[in-house]
């Protein structure tokens, strides 16, 4: 079990799981290489949410949520995409010199409301689409929680936000925006643009120039402004082979920055999260934002 629970979304997501036993997973996009020379190099990626970094043990990142930003800012296209049980996998041909951003963003609304005297949950998995080739079929009773004791009413399955009834009261909803990204550079690095929306990773040290023994500075932006006092978690690859996650937990300074000195070369997962009261969804009370970056720290 991970010591640090970066977010509790999966607990809310998994209708069949008891919240207290649900594990948080870490969303990542893992590149096969981060710095390349020459032209038209191919890079392949794994995109997954996993309990251990960077393993494949929980769920894929939905392939259709992957976005690629080319060095000139135009969108790129992934090829050879395949969504599997534990991961999505895809290739990218680098047909421009500079820094490419590969990202995925998932926005969901989760929470509870009361209707007809019963508490209902919002979010969760929607009912599986019947007859969709290759998709998992619902098991009997899926989404229903077993009664706490015999005779107690069965809890109803969660409803989609769009299906929330008009007579809902005591509405307590949280919008969760989970962003994950990684960067690969062919040739000379270029700056990474930010959108000014939500919580964003705004590197001061280029994400493809991070080196063992050196200190990297990263800035975080909230709606385009420096995000001070937010929590940043750094986890090195291979936590399945350690007794503990050994996460490094940092807090951004007044300029929204953290400084990380890399103890050794390898893949790292750097994840920040915060929440505020400015959700895009009108009926939600809170906006919880997570941004997770996969970085390759090189030898000196």
């Amino acid at each position: 079990m991970r010591k640090i629970s970066p977010w509790i979304m999966p607990a809310l997501l998994a209708g069949t799981m008891i919240a207290s036993t649900a594990q948080a997973d870490s969303t990542y996009i893992k590149p096969s290489s981060t710095n390349s020379s020459g032209e038209n190099n191919m890079v392949t990626f794994d995109a997954a949410g996993a309990d251990h970094l960077f393993y494949l043990d929980h769920r894929p990142v939905q392939l259709n949520t992957i976005t690629v930003t080319r060095p000139d800012g135009t969108p790129g296209t992934v090829i050879n995409g395949l969504q599997q049980r534990f991961r999505s996998v895809f290739d990218l041909r680098l047909d421009q010199q500079g820094t490419w951003r590969i990202a995925a963003q998932q926005t969901m609304v989760t929470g509870t409301f009361m209707a007809d005297g019963q508490e209902r949950r919002v979010g969760g998995r929607r009912a599986p689409t019947p007859a969709a080739g290759g998709e998992r079929q619902a098991r009997a009773g899926e989404g229903q929680r077993a009664p706490a004791n015999p005779g107690a009413p069965v809890r109803l399955p969660p409803v989609a936000l769009a299906d929330m009834p008009a007579n809902a009261t005591d509405v307590h909803l949280t919008e969760v925006i989970n962003r994950t990204e990684t960067f690969v550079t062919q040739g000379a690095p270029t700056d990474v643009a930010h959108s000014g929306k939500g919580l964003e990773f705004d590197p001061v040290t280029h994400p493809n120039a991070v080196v063992q023994g050196e200190t990297a500075r990263f800035r975080y932006l909230l709606d385009g402004k420096p995000a001070a006092g937010i929590t940043v978690t750094v986890v090195a690859d291979g936590d399945r082979y350690r007794e503990a996650t050994d996460a490094l937990t940092l807090t951004t300074d007044k300029d929204g920055q953290v400084a990380i000195t890399w103890p050794k070369a390898g893949l790292y997962w750097v994840s920040a999260q915060t929440q505020d009261k400015n959700p895009g969804e009108k009926r939600a009370e809170l906006r919880r934002m997570i941004t997770s970056e996969t970085l390759e720290v090189m030898t000196p």
Binding site: S33, N35, S36, S37, G38, N41, T299, P300
Partner: peptide, 14 residues
Amino acid sequence: PGTKWLADLRSWWR
């Protein structure tokens, strides 16, 4: 092409 492996000179490349 031969340029593909220049990045293997990791420090120099960076």
